[in-house]
């Protein structure tokens, strides 16, 4: 049972790292930052996985994402000076696997579906799904950025001298 959980955590971290490297390549991240981006994404995503485990902390996705982003931000502030990059060059790509993409595009899809239904019950149902997905994605992204930016505030001097 415990070994299954450990394997799942490692698997989650591995695939999050692969996703972070791929998505960061779209944003022309310097090659020397790939390894740190992968490491941060693996740490953050697997931490969120642990926080959301049904048998564990059972945390909601919004605070779990914010806490994981905080961990990513802390690691980025510490590791970014080693590769002479600003912290956001490391933590923004690492946050990409946690971006609530499905919530974001379902918000638009349910908005369109709402407009296609004139009956009150169906309209309210799809409107509820539209608002639910929209609010969830907004708060996940906000929580993530606030969480990841907090260490930059806390260690301002280190964060803004990372490239020197």
């Amino acid at each position: 049972m415990l070994s299954d959980i450990v394997i799942n955590i490692l698997e989650d971290g591995l695939f999050a790292a692969l996703a972070a490297i791929g998505f960061s390549s779209i944003s022309n991240t310097p090659r020397r930052a790939y390894l740190i981006c992968a490491l941060l994404a693996a740490a953050g995503h697997s931490l969120r996985y642990v926080l959301m485990l049904p048998d564990g902390a059972v945390m909601h996705i919004i605070p779990a994402s914010a806490l994981s982003a905080f961990a990513i931000g802390m690691l980025a502030v510490l590791l970014a000076p080693r590769i002479k990059c600003p912290p956001e060059v490391c933590f923004f790509p690492a946050l990409l696997p946690m971006i609530p993409g499905m919530y974001a595009y379902r918000t638009i899809q349910y908005l369109l579906t709402t407009l296609c239904h004139t009956g009150e019950e169906a309209f309210q149902h799809y409107f509820y799904l539209f608002v639910y997905n929209g609010l969830t994605s907004t708060f996940i992204i906000s929580g993530m950025v606030v969480g990841a930016t907090l260490p930059v505030f806390l260690f301002k001097k280190l964060s803004f001298t990372a490239t020197c």
Partner: peptide, 20 residues
């Protein structure tokens, strides 16, 4: 970044995302 490198890495990334 080279376009073929980005193409392959993005495809691997999205497949990994599917697994997640």
């Amino acid at each position: 970044t080279g376009k073929w490198e980005v193409l392959v890495l993005t495809s691997i990334a999205n497949a990994s995302f599917c697994h997640l």
